[in-house]
Design a protein around this nucleic acid. Sequence first.
DNA 1: AGGAATTGGTTGCAATCGTAACCATGGCGA
DNA 2: TCGCCATGGTTACGATTGCAACCAATTCCT
Lengths: 148, 148
Amino acid sequence: MTDRTTLALEDFLPYRLTRLTDAISRDFSQAYRARLGLTRPEWRTLATIGQFGTMTATEVGAHSSMHKTKVSRAVASLETRRWLVRTPDPQDRRVERLTLSKTGQKAYEDMVPVARSFETGLLERMTPEERAALLAGLAALERTTLTE
Amino acid sequence: MTDRTTLALEDFLPYRLTRLTDAISRDFSQAYRARLGLTRPEWRTLATIGQFGTMTATEVGAHSSMHKTKVSRAVASLETRRWLVRTPDPQDRRVERLTLSKTGQKAYEDMVPVARSFETGLLERMTPEERAALLAGLAALERTTLTE
DNA sequence: AGGAATTGGTTGCAATCGTAACCATGGCGA
DNA sequence: TCGCCATGGTTACGATTGCAACCAATTCCT
C-alpha cells in the first residue's frame, strides 16, 4: 500500500496529531465558548491562574505554552471582564501579580467539571487498555519532543 | 495533588494534545519551509495530490482536513509556482482536475523522504512498546472522535 | 556609580484564517 | 423546459496570530 515513493498522509504522525487535535479542541472550545464566552487563550489563562492561585504573565505563558502577546491580550480581556485583578509587585515593579477575582474564581469552578466531563467523554468509549496505551504513548512522545 | 476543584492543565488531554501538536508541526513545518518554501496548506495539498495523482479541490480538502478556502488559496499558490496544473473536467465544468507538474512531482519526491525521516526521528527515541502504545492509543482516539 | 545587557509586558503591523456571501454550473422535480 | 436546490470553487471581510519593535524597570559588569 505505502511504497517508498509515496507518503500516506492519513498514517503520517504529524498529520494524525493535528487532525485529532483540531477536532478535539474545536469541540472543547465550543463547550466553554458557549458557556462562558471565552476564547482559547482566555480559557487557558483562566485555567492556569485558577490552578496556581497567583502568577505573573510570564509564568502563565510558560505553564500554558502561550506566546507572551497572547497572554497579554488574554489578561487584558479577562481584566475588563473583571474576572482577574492585577496587583503591582512591590519587589519588582515590572511584574504584575495576577489573581482571579471572586467572579473569576466562580467561573473557574464552573469550568472545571465541564472540562473533566469533556475529557471523560473522550475516554469513556475506549477500553481500559486503549486508554492506558494512549496515555503512555503521549507521555513517551512528550518526553522525546518537549524536553531536552 | 489534583483535587476535585482544580484542574491540572498539564494532565488535561486536550491541552496535552495541542501542546504536543504545536511543537511537532512547528518543527516539521520548519523542515519543509526551509527546504521547499511551502506553507502548511501548500504542503498538505502537495502531499495529497502527490499521494493520489489527480484530484479535485474538494477531494483534496476532504482527504487533508482542510477548509475549502485554504485549499483554494494553496492551489492558486502552487499553480503560480508551476508545481500544479489545473485542467477543466469535460464532464462537469465546475470541477478542476488537479495534477502535479513535472516540477511539482519532483518536489513531492524530494519531500517524501524528509517527512519519513522526520517521523522516524520522533519515534526512534521511544521503545518499541511505547511506539506501539502511541499508535494504538491514537487509533483508538481517532475512532472515538473522528468517526460517527 | 553608571552604562550595557536582560527581563516583564504592551503594541503596531503584516500575514493567515474561517465565516459568509457570492458566481457559475449541474441535477432534479413538476 | 423551467424553476429551485445542491455543488465546486473564489473572494471580501473581520478576527486572531506571531514577529519585531518598543518602553520601563532591574541586574550585571567594571
